[in-house]
Write a protein that binds this DNA or RNA. Structure first.
Lengths: 154, 154
DNA sequence: TCTGAAATCAGAATGGT
DNA sequence: ACCATTCTGATTTCAGA
């Protein structure tokens, strides 16, 4: 890749990834660049699609979303089975992540529910009625030790 | 749970989770509540810890973080092995998620790297030198079909 | 592409219900 | 707890380098 992102851009992104509300004034002071330049840079990063958006982090526990599961899925072979299955999985309520992987497993699915009943109804039963699936094993998460998917720059 | 979050709060959170920069004016119009009430509600949700923060989503691909892996890990038994291993895994550079699960696997680890070399150096080699691990299998993600961990309300 | 200054607009503070 | 108004300060715009 060419140098479309320089060192200043990286420092801007590093500050923003942790706090979307960091003010132009404070940031400009910290980075020692004029605030209009900073604004110009940020706008540019947005337009390039490097900044994908600004989100609010909501505590899942506050909404009682304590039934966290990760499902490992093996698809049957057949044309389009994988593509179709992938998007079907992503549309299930409660599912926030679907990864297509290589190996013994085809898909890894991340999901959150309020309780076992909601999980059964919205996820497991639907999973079991999908003909594209050969087998699946679903893991219940006992403890989330780390979950910060927005961290991209260290 | 008691009614600390009512329907209006839920609607506020639903809008904010998709866009942290949604202005008080526009939101108030959409929700048909006065903007001062809206401000009051949001502040309350922040103070309660239900809103955990505002972050910027950066496109990992723009930073060449295309080598995405998910690792399934089985720990050896022994006192504190699990707790210690969990936090050790979370501290590896590139790791953004560590989940402790029940079953055949003990930990599921999510990580992103620039290429195979960085993955080997920062992840696999360190993993292989951890005595607490009995065995591990690491999956390379071919395609991220869905990844929106901020989605908590549908 | 970068910057300073002006203009606009959003969010915080206040005080009354 | 809710809401209208005021006030402060942040973001956007624009013209010039």
């Amino acid at each position: 890749m060419s140098e479309i992102i320089d060192n200043v851009d990286l420092r801007i992104l590093k500050l923003l990834q942790k706090n979307a509300k960091y003010s132009l004034n404070d940031m400009a002071k910290e980075l020692k660049i004029p605030k209009s330049t900073l604004a110009y840079r940020i706008k540019r990063l947005e337009n390039l699609g490097i900044i994908k958006g600004y989100y609010t982090q909501i505590d899942p526990t506050a909404l009682n979303l304590d039934y966290v599961v990760i499902s490992l899925i093996k698809a049957k072979y057949g044309k389009d089975y994988h593509i179709r299955l992938g998007s079907k999985l992503g549309e299930l309520p409660g599912v926030w992540g679907v990864y297509f992987v290589l190996g013994e497993i085809d898909f890894i699915v991340m999901a959150r529910y309020k309780n076992r009943e909601e999980f059964m109804e919205n996820f497991l039963e639907k999973l079991m009625s999908m003909p594209e699936i050969e087998r699946s094993s679903t893991q219940v998460v006992v403890k989330i030790i780390k979950e910060s998917p927005n961290l991209v720059i260290w």
